[in-house]
Design a protein around this nucleic acid. Structure first.
Ligand SMILES: [Mn+2]
Ligand SMILES: [Mn+2]
Ligand SMILES: [Mn+2]
Ligand SMILES: [Mn+2]
Lengths: 258, 258
DNA sequence: CTTTTGAATTAGACACATCTAATTCTGTTC
DNA sequence: GAACAGAATTAGATGTGTCTAATTCAAAAG
């Protein structure tokens, strides 16, 4: 039907649409899928022929309903796999992404069902990203704000951490900053360097890292288990329960990062 | 490095070599991988360039040591996956093959290690085929004979069942004929129809099916658990312990069926 | 030996996914 | 409103994996 390469393009377009809205620029897609612009143009023509996208020449591209469904399906596969690898095959949360990327195009619907069943229909993956339902409606994480937008004194819970750059993830895992962790913002320096307290430790994070951590205000009820900081074991359900009452909307709130 | 298609060719060549010895005919490969002969010729040239096979024009093809290692690696992936699917994701033994075929090219070495670890380095897959070790030495199942070569009155244990044709597998699963099952040969009719007793039931199997069931003589010690016939749950270790003392060599004894 | 015949290879084509280089378009700047 | 800069597309090429049709070969039969 669709090749795995096509699925990757659709996933990329979906993520970009979620972050900045349609129409999506060719160059943006090219950057995500790591291909040249002419390559992307020609693939977009193919995807248009297949009814997956609509486009206006020199303007941009938009997913059709069908293309969006395919993208969501791939994202569901990806996040179920990440969750399964973490919970049943002893992967740490910073190792799951690559393996899931390789497998997401190759599992059967049966496999998807069985994994979802043994995991008991999980709501979020190890990075805190919401897992689309089997019905493939667009997943909506609750509203969150980037840590880089927080102010000194804020007490917050980590909702999601972008799974894009591996070395950041390993660093954060080591620092104990994982979805579900409660942390407090100590200082926001010029150029966005954020200093946070996590448990008894203190960490300074460059702006680029702080921007990839999405948080919600801490419920006071949560402060008791603020030291539940180790490993990628935070209860995903709780994470998203917490997210329900954040104060500010966030363009990335759909949790589109694959 | 090598594409998944190339891996499939190498696996096919390995299986044919195991069954009938090198050199392997182009047409044999074509049949296994379901491609035309010219397609196979051109792929064999590619594989020769990559050092995976040697060939003599118009004569046949042979795996190099490197090509053999790749094939064994793919087979290890396949059989580990089959075993994992059966034991941890509730697949029945007649459902595992297709899923494993799709995933075998896409799992990482890390995934392989972790699956092997949670399964505790299994020795055989759900069809009774031996799983190559992590060191990728050619696996050797013990000697077995096809059921079609047995005689009336023989009392035997099912060692392996070819995983090539799905509908046969489902039928045999239903009839309770799985690796580890002890059965007795009641009658061998003309044209190879074999009638066997399994538990209290009696089954007649056409020659083609009987030929795909490989057996060893029953140890008398085993007759106690002759009714351990349900589901794909027979203990694989026992199966291959049993195989160690069969009487006749079998060209397919390497268990090459993927 | 020569002929036959079936298998294997060569020839030529096509679809897909990719690239670099050249061209064209759009939106912004003067 | 003309010129420019940057983005997107077109043009043209490459590698891979596949096919059908035509040709060549080798092993078996005479
Ligand atoms: Mn699915
Ligand atoms: Mn993720
Ligand atoms: Mn391996
Ligand atoms: Mn098998």
């Amino acid at each position: 039907m669709l090749s795995d390469v096509m699925e990757d393009y659709l996933k990329a377009i979906y993520v970009i649409e979620s972050e900045s809205g349609p129409p999506v620029a060719t160059s943006e897609i090219a950057e995500r899928v790591d291909k040249t612009a002419p390559t992307v143009t020609s693939m977009l023509e193919t995807l248009e022929d297949r009814g997956m996208v609509t486009r206006e020449k020199y303007k941009g591209t938009e997913l059709t309903a069908e293309g969006r469904t395919v993208a969501i399906e791939v994202i569901r596969h990806h996040r179920l796999l990440e969750t399964y690898l973490a919970e049943h095959l002893d992967y740490s949360w910073d190792e799951v992404h690559e393996e899931a990327d390789a497998l997401e195009h190759h599992i059967s619907e049966e496999f998807e069902r069985r994994v979802a069943e043994v995991l008991d229909e999980p709501q979020a993956d190890p990075h805190g990203d919401p897992i689309p339902s089997a019905e493939l409606e667009p997943p909506t994480g609750g509203p969150t704000v980037p840590l880089s937008a927080c102010e000194s004194g804020d007490r917050i819970v980590v909702a999601r951490v972008s799974d894009r750059r591996d070395e950041d993830l390993a660093y954060l895992a080591d620092a104990g900053i994982t979805p579900g962790t409660t942390i407090s913002v100590r200082d926001v320096a010029p150029f966005g360097m954020v200093t946070v307290g996590v448990g008894d430790d203190e960490q300074s994070l460059p702006e680029s890292v702080a921007a990839s951590i999405h948080v919600t205000p801490a419920d006071h009820a949560d402060e008791a288990n603020a030291d539940e900081v180790h490993a990628g074991e935070a209860d995903s359900d709780e994470v998203h329960a917490d997210e329900a009452n954040a104060d500010e909307a966030d363009p990335d709130a759909t949790g589109a990062g694959a």
